[in-house]
Structures are given as C-alpha cells and as structure tokens.
Design a protein around this nucleic acid. Structure first.
Lengths: 227, 227
DNA sequence: GTCTATATCACGATAGAC
DNA sequence: GTCTATCGTGATATAGAC
C-alpha cells in the first residue's frame, strides 16, 4: 500500500473521471470552439453532472487549458525524438513532418483544436495564467525544434536561403491546417483525411514539396527560370 | 431626382448602417467566432441598439452569412481576373497567389474569418439555407480556379505529378493560415504580418517555394537524391 | 466525489411606441 | 428605422446535503 506504484494506480483510478472529462472536452472544443461548448454538455457527455465537473476543474478556462496542455504534450512527445542532431537536415525535416502528421492523424481533433486555440489566444491579451504561460512555453519549444532544423539546413547550404520563420509557417499550414480542414478538405481530396492511405499520401506530398522546394540550387540552375 | 444614380445614392445612404454593421461584425466574428460574439456587442459597437440590428438582419446566422458572403465576394473579385488562359501555368499560379495574398493582407480579418467559417461549417450539417448554398458555390468556384491551374500545369508537364487537391490544401495553408495566425505568426516572423514589407516577403517566399517545389524535374535529376 | 437546487447574468429574439 | 421593455432560455458558477 505504501509502494509508490500503488499510489500511482490509486491516483489514476481516482482521476478516471478526470481523463474522461478531458477526452470529451477535447472533442467538443475541437468541434465548436471554446464559446460554442457549455460545461453542462461536457459534463453530461462524460457521464457526470455539471457540479461534479466543477469539482475537477475550477472553471471553464481551466478545463480548456488542461485540454490544450494535454494535446501539446502529446505532440511534443512525438516530436522531440526527431530532434537528434546525428542526422542530415533533410532527413531530420522528413522525420519531423512524419511525426507531426502521425500525431495529427492519430487524434483527429488535435489539428482543429490547435488552430482554434491559436485564434482565440490573442482575444484575451490580459490573462497570463500559469497554465497559459506553460502552454506558450511548450509551443515555443516545438516551434524552436523545427526552426532549428531549417536554419541548420540553410546554414549548411543544403537548403536554399529561405526565411526559417516563413517556412515554419508554411509547414504548419501544410500539416495542421490540412488536418483541421474537415469536410472541406475531405471533399477536396475525395475521402477521409485520416484514413491510412490518405495520411500516407499527405506525408508523401508534403515531404516531396519541401524536398524540391527547399533544395539548394546548384548555382546558375534556376528551377525553370530560363528566360 | 428620378435619375437612376440618385436612387443608387439614396439606397446607399439608407443602407449606411447596414455597411457599418457588416464591418463591425466581420471584425468581431473574425476575432472570437460565431458563438463568441453577441449581437448586442455588434450592434452597440456599430452605434445602434440590438433591436435596430434585428431590423437589418433577421437573425444572427443571417448576419453571419452576410459577412461571409461579402468576404468571399471580395476574394473572388480579386482572383477571377487571374484566371485568363493566355498565360503559362507558372505565371498563372504566381498571379493567383499574389492576388490572394493581396486580398488577405488588405483586410486582415479575412483569413481568420475564412478558417473559422471552415471549422464551424461542419458543426451544423443540417442547415442548407439559400445563402449557405451560395457561399459554398462561391468557395467552390474559387478553389476550382486554383485546381485548374495546377492540373493544367501537371498535364503540360511543367509541374511535377503532384496531387492537385493536396497542393491546393498546401497553398491555402501557406496563404490563409499564415495571415490568420495573428500574434503567433507575428512573433515568429518578427513583426506585423500585414506590413508592406512583410507581405512582399511572404509573396516571395511562397512563390519561390512552389516554384521550386512544383517544377518538373528534367528526368533523372532528383532534388539532391544523390544517394 | 457526486448530486439537487439555486443565484446571477447574458443571450437571441419579439412587441410595440415614436 | 430607431428605440425601450420584455420574454424565455441557457450560460457559468456556487451552496450545501449525502
């Protein structure tokens, strides 16, 4: 009973509702955004009453931030193993993209949640809560990883002299936006975006585009600029 | 007085509040989404009472759809001139990207509004209102234009054999997402995304990436795949 | 930890005077 | 076309019994 692992199991069991709530809230917030979801709906979908939920999370924004923190942590766990320096930049970029797309495809709500959070972030400029700071820090680390890969590639001359920041933006657009585009993207691409084949094709298309798009040109060999 | 142009002026004056409401609503909906904005806030920011707003727009969703319709129309006006067939695909793509970025940068609320609309679209699957159908049709035409350019380029062999649909997604990500990323993107890129120089750099970066990324490889000349 | 009951408030929308 | 006043509902959050 005083074994630490018992404590962990106990605590896990005690927080079973906790996890259920987070799961449900993640789905709902991704679908309808922060203000589009009521805590009552979250609670009852998770199988509790509203008041019980307020026992687990002090208020709605705390719940929201907990959801975001879990999602960002999941992504960081996927991404950090790809940051080992002992590889060439092109391969590191490929692995980073693969890992991010895997993370986004595995939990289909993630992409939308992230973009929504990005949008709703600078609505409330006043609230630098501790959890909020933590979220920003995690996000910063994730972005730093990609920026590092790109900057190194440029410095080593294996990538063109692109702006790392702008390329980061484009990578995010190519990955997060794609998996957040929902019905629109599904209709455009002709089927579910998270089906196994669709995910594999997305990886191929994105990696190929950046492969060709970032590759340093051998000098004097512009891509078709033969005017 | 019975001159037709007088009628136009009269009607314009009569609908002055109309335009003001649309302007305010566009800003607020872009910032906080459909459910994050109350009609009271829209009305009072526009300088009227809530009831007066309901005289101009029957209900909240009608107002929302009017905002979206105006935004999409603005974009289509910018984009359709770039669809003339008498140019090579690479130039057509460049002009399309330039026009879209111009539209997004000129009205900074547009990008966010569009992405939000995309997300909130498949929340309510039940409501095929006339205005909603119209929005979808406009969006469809816009996307069709880009798809046409890409497909033609692939068919003519000036682009690699990419998936048009996936490339459309990536272009949207590189443009709409970028200008929707707000404070996050601004911090990443080191300044306002809609400043003149920032817009010009974004155009250059995006066009260069797709220029190199889509260019057909001369056969046997993989982009650095010299393993 | 979970519940019922309640407080308080803002929401979308309408009625009707001017 | 604009307003005040109001209706009905659902929101977040709390109090307190079990």
């Amino acid at each position: 009973m005083n074994d630490p692992s018992d404590r962990a199991v106990e605590s896990q069991a005690a927080h079973a509702s906790h996890h259920k709530i987070l799961e449900v809230a993640e789905m709902l917030f991704a679908r309808r955004g922060f203000s589009g979801v009521g805590v009552r709906e979250v609670a009852e979908t998770a199988g509790l009453s509203k008041s019980s939920l307020f026992h687990h999370f002090r208020n709605k924004v705390e719940l929201y931030e907990a959801v975001l923190a879990r999602v960002l942590a999941r992504i960081e766990d996927r991404l950090s193993p790809t940051l080992s320096d002992d590889e060439r930049c092109r391969e590191r970029l490929d692995r980073w993209i693969d890992a991010l797309i895997d993370a986004l495809a595995e939990h289909p709500t993630t992409a939308r949640l992230l973009l929504r959070a990005l949008f709703e972030d600078d609505d409330r400029p006043s609230e630098p809560s501790a959890a909020g700071k933590d979220l920003q820090a995690t996000l910063g680390r994730i972005i730093e990883g990609l920026t590092g890969i790109l900057a190194a590639g440029v410095e080593q001359g294996v990538f063109r002299a692109v702006s790392s920041a702008h390329t980061v933006q484009t990578v995010i657009g190519a990955t997060v936006y794609h998996f957040a585009s929902g019905d629109f993207g599904a209709e455009l691409c002709g089927g579910s975006l998270v089906a196994r084949d669709a995910v594999r094709q997305r990886k191929r298309e994105v990696k190929a585009l950046f492969h060709h798009g970032l590759a340093a040109v051998p000098a004097g060999a512009g891509a078709g600029g033969a005017t």
